[in-house]
């Protein structure tokens, strides 16, 4: 508040201005590519090698004798083609892959990853490129109830649907194989249509599917995000992949 102090604060603000004036010309000298990667991923990937870590998780990532298949490897192959880069696939557990990502040994981790906070603290996530909507499906010819109240719904033994179904007053029943049951089944819409079930209108949970990149690789992120946003027919592809299993 004192005039003297006012002078000091003015000078200190000038420091900010100098930093800004320093950064702006630096940016203009960079040329066409903006934003740039902090660790130059894009320069290595384009006309070079794309290091991809993957975990088996059908139909997102399917492990076959002749190499990886499934939705996500397909998406990455088409991007690699565009960028004229060779893909090196590295199979490992999600945990190992995320650690490798943090040490910048990988450019990308896939495996049907969904958006969650633990993941976003370790890696930079793409925006969800697909939302898997879980609902209850019925066998053709079966009665369509007005609500899920008291309805017995088949779910796999390993699932993340139990609590959400109970919230909707349904009775979840764990079965070993949901593709061979007489009961209505809770599953994603693409799974239901692949198995000839008719999807109900309820929304139980939604999985937001993402891919994981190293933090700070903003040009690489932008290139992948552009590719994902332009990628269509994901639901149909998932259906076909599931039906083929």
């Amino acid at each position: 508040m004192r005039t003297q102090k006012g002078y000091i604060s003015l000078r200190y603000k000038h420091v900010l201005l100098f930093i800004l004036l320093g950064i702006l010309p630096a940016v203009s000298l960079l040329g066409c590519r903006y934003p740039k990667d902090i660790e130059h991923s894009m320069e290595r990937i384009q006309d070079g090698v794309l290091e991809v870590g993957l975990t088996e998780n059908p139909p997102w990532v399917i492990r076959r004798e002749d190499g990886p298949a499934g939705l996500e490897p397909e998406i990455i192959r088409s991007l690699a083609e565009q960028l004229n880069s060779e893909v090196h696939w590295h199979w490992d557990s999600e945990d190992d892959l995320l650690a490798a990502l943090q040490h910048r040994q990988l450019d990308l981790v896939i495996g049907g990853l969904t958006k969650r906070s633990r993941l976003s603290s370790q890696a930079a996530l793409t925006r969800p490129y697909y939302q898997s909507r879980y609902t209850v499906g019925f066998h053709s010819g079966a009665q369509f109830p007005a609500s899920l109240d008291g309805l017995e719904v088949a779910i796999p033994t390993i699932n993340h649907l139990y609590a959400a179904l109970e919230d909707k007053n349904a009775k979840p029943v764990k079965v070993t194989d949901i593709s061979h049951t007489e009961r209505p089944v809770a599953a994603p819409t693409w799974w239901l249509s692949a198995h000839g079930l008719i999807a109900g209108p309820w929304e139980i949970i939604t999985d937001k599917h993402v891919m994981a990149l190293p933090k700070g690789e903003n040009a690489w992120m932008l290139a992948l995000q552009r590719h994902l946003n332009g990628y269509s027919n994901i639901e149909e592809q998932l259906q076909q992949l599931e039906a083929a299993q």
Partner: peptide
Amino acid sequence: MTGLAAIAGIVGVGAGLWWADALAGAL
């Protein structure tokens, strides 16, 4: 000035300078 500093931070990150953002934040 602070708004400008934040802009500088983001522009800096876009230019591949990892420290620009945190430095602008600190200022």
